[in-house]
Amino acid sequence: MWTLVPLGNPGPEYQDTRHNLGRLLLQRWLADRNLAPVPTKRFPSGTLYPLTGQLQALVPTTYMNLSGEACLQASAAGIYPRRLILLHDDKDLPLGVGRFRLDGSDGGHNGLRSVFECLGTEEIARLRLGIGPFERPLADFVLGHWTDPEWERLDALDAPFARFLELLSAAETLSGLGNQVNPAGFWNLVRDPE
């Protein structure tokens, strides 16, 4: 079983902000399939939901910079950290570009930092979802709402995100998953007009 962890901030005021891109894509994926999963387990800092096949989701109920608490509680309940897939925004990738990684530093992302500190390792898989190019001040940018042109680009993310989940659901291991998406582990989720 693979456990998706869409990082973000709770509450309707943050729902459509750039920081919540992983949650947004997962919510759209569920809506497209008319799925309304019922929680299978509640932790003090997160809720576990069944998805389809070999996929489930652990949704932290804390703010982004405390995301690791839910992961730690899930780990204590038997969910192996190497079976977690973090879904998070990445200011250093352009909107419409994603990258799947098996490990690496937090890159200044507070949600990742919290997960790594709580679990004591950076060897946690993650799907980096571009929101760039970013503007300063960074906090205002990541907590800002999508613009109309950005919403148009977001519509094109649904199909490749669904393909990623399809590949993940069929994968026994994560090695090579990025290569199935694209040989370099990168892929353009939105094709710019040529």
Results as ranks from 00 to 15, higher is better:
residue 135 E to P: 00
residue 186 F to N: 03
residue 20 N to W: 04
residue 159 A to L: 13
residue 164 F to Q: 07
residue 173 T to E: 08
residue 192 D to T: 09
residue 59 V to T: 14
residue 96 G to P: 08
residue 169 S to V: 00
residue 31 A to F: 03
residue 140 D to Y: 01
residue 76 A to W: 00
residue 57 A to P: 10
residue 86 L to C: 07
residue 61 T to C: 07
residue 78 G to W: 05
residue 176 G to Y: 02
residue 65 N to P: 04
residue 102 L to F: 06
residue 181 V to N: 00
residue 34 N to C: 09
residue 43 F to D: 09
residue 120 G to N: 07
residue 146 W to F: 15
residue 149 P to Y: 11
residue 193 P to T: 15
residue 35 L to Y: 02
residue 187 W to S: 04
residue 164 F to C: 10
residue 191 R to W: 02
residue 167 L to Q: 08
residue 60 P to C: 09
residue 184 A to G: 15
residue 39 P to A: 06
residue 184 A to D: 02
residue 120 G to C: 08
residue 45 S to G: 01
residue 135 E to N: 04
residue 104 G to M: 05
residue 49 Y to K: 08
residue 72 L to C: 05
residue 146 W to C: 06
residue 83 R to E: 14
residue 146 W to I: 13
residue 110 N to Q: 14
residue 88 H to Y: 10
residue 192 D to R: 10
residue 171 A to I: 00
residue 109 H to G: 02
residue 58 L to G: 11
residue 40 T to I: 15
residue 7 L to S: 06
residue 6 P to Y: 02
residue 72 L to V: 02
residue 162 A to F: 00
residue 117 E to K: 12
residue 46 G to K: 05
residue 80 Y to S: 13
residue 117 E to V: 02
residue 100 F to E: 01
residue 99 R to Q: 11
residue 130 G to S: 05
residue 48 L to C: 03
residue 94 P to W: 06
residue 175 S to E: 13
residue 59 V to I: 15
residue 63 Y to A: 01
residue 75 S to T: 13
residue 31 A to P: 07
residue 59 V to M: 05
residue 84 L to H: 07
residue 136 R to D: 14
residue 185 G to R: 04
